[in-house]
Amino acid sequence: MRFLVATDFSEASDKALMSAVNLATLTNSEIVLLHIFEVSEIDKSAKKIIGSGFLNREIKNRLEQMVSEIEKNKSIKISYLTKEGELFDTMKNAVEETSSDILFIGTHGVHGVQHITGSFLAKTINMVDVPVWVVQKGSEICNFKNIYIYIDELFDNPVNPIIIDIAKKFNSSIHFNFTDSTSGFATKELISKIQSTLENSGINYTLSSLNGEDDMIKAFTQKATNTDSSLIILDRNQNEISTFIDVFNNKKCVEVLCLN
């Protein structure tokens, strides 16, 4: 697999890179670091005077240092890519250009300007055509002993190969949480699919219901974040991504993978 990691050299994006390295080490995956220059009119004027090479040199030096440091300590393939343009379109194009399988992004979570963070996350997830792995700057990089999945009638595939691969690599237990929006028949179909897929996989799993909860998303988030070494998995097809912003920005800083 190939992971694209967006970086602006912030603490949050550094933590996203650490998470990508953690997963890449286990899955023998490649990492591409992406830095996007959002060019302003001032930048354009400056480039006419001193040239773009001078303005970009410091950024490229920092990226080269990051690549060198990881290559020195980890046996994974890593490179970097710089792009200029509008943030979201450029990120989408970079995902396609690099044929990446997962996009890693860092977020400041509940700190800072939360509504801007939420808007950024929602737009990023909706723009790209690959799963998005969200890491808060307060996240602790760990082996995911527990994977929590929120399942409603819009969840496309609760036994997505990515989920199975992560669970096997980290020896994780998967906890499937069903909402009351899934009909009895649909729930039985999903449970049958889960059981048939995991029966001989060696993966431990549980099935539970969120029925009766006044706020199922809140109840799910509390359950998922009260367990050590967790990973939360959502599906982009589930309602509006904006309804899950509190999940992405959970106070325990649990990492979230949003499938597409």
Rank of each mutant, 00 (worst) to 15 (best):
V67F: 10
I70G: 08
E71M: 10
E71C: 07
K72N: 13
K72I: 03
K74H: 15
S75F: 14
S79V: 09
Y80N: 13
L81A: 11
T82A: 09
K83Q: 14
E84F: 06
G85D: 03
F88I: 09
T90S: 09
K92P: 05
A94M: 08
V95G: 00
E97P: 04
S99I: 12
S100W: 02
S100N: 07
D101V: 01
F104C: 01
F104P: 01
F104E: 01
I105L: 08
T107R: 02
T107C: 05
H108Q: 11
V110W: 13
H115T: 15
I116P: 06
T117V: 12
G118Q: 08
S119N: 14
T124E: 05
N126T: 02
N126K: 11
V128S: 00
V128M: 02
P131L: 02
V134F: 00
Q136F: 03
Q136S: 11
K137Q: 11
G138V: 12
S139C: 08
I147A: 04
Y148L: 03
I151E: 06
E153S: 13
N157P: 09
P158L: 06
V159E: 06
V159P: 06
N160W: 07
I163A: 01
I163K: 02
D165L: 10
D165E: 15
I166H: 02
